[in-house]
Design a protein around this nucleic acid. Structure first.
Length: 154
DNA sequence: GCCAACGTTGGC
DNA sequence: GCCAACGTTGGC
């Protein structure tokens, strides 16, 4: 069982959207490293921080769980989708996604707050220049955030 | 809107 | 294989 941090722009899929839909395919990843995490390392039952990016206060907004292993991301075949990839074919899909299930909302734990804790300093999401939309989280980091930072949260 | 950082593309 | 140009991400 592993832990992850998964970025989503709330304008596209927010934690409230995930709560309403219960389970969503993690479509739209177009970075090989992030894809490889989903394809090669993620397993059903893994837990993830649902992170809001590209918004006024970026940070962790909730928790979710991987419920389906990597499968082709159908948006790559849809010419109307912003994630369309003309170089990918159904015979040999380039992009995959896992499914994630809503677990719970938490209080928003801002990126700036995560940076305040030396216990979290090694998290990839905090590293300079990090842009990966999916990054691993260590068990100690997971426990620190869920047990120390979210305890009084909603 | 700016810009640092990084990934991808494509000419050579 | 190199690397310049370009595009994207995403915090601020």
């Amino acid at each position: 069982m592993r832990y992850w941090l998964m970025k989503s722009e709330p304008d596209e899929v927010s934690i409230d959207d995930l709560e309403a839909r219960r389970t969503v395919p993690w479509f739209g990843v177009r970075n090989y490293q992030a894809r490889n995490f989903m394809r090669d390392a993620m397993q059903v039952g893994d837990l993830a921080f649902f992170y809001h990016s590209g918004c006024p206060v970026p940070g962790i907004a909730g928790l979710c769980e991987v419920t389906a292993p990597a499968h082709p991301d159908l948006t790559q075949f849809d010419p109307a989708s912003p994630y369309f990839d003309a170089k990918s074919s159904p015979d040999d899909p380039r992009w995959v996604c896992v499914d994630v299930r809503f677990l719970r909302k938490t209080r928003l734990v801002p990126l700036a707050e995560l940076r305040e804790h030396v216990e979290l300093a090694a998290m990839p999401v905090l590293q300079r220049g990090n842009r990966l939309s999916i990054t691993p989280v260590g068990e100690a980091e997971w426990r620190f955030v869920t047990e120390r930072l979210m305890r009084s949260g909603s």
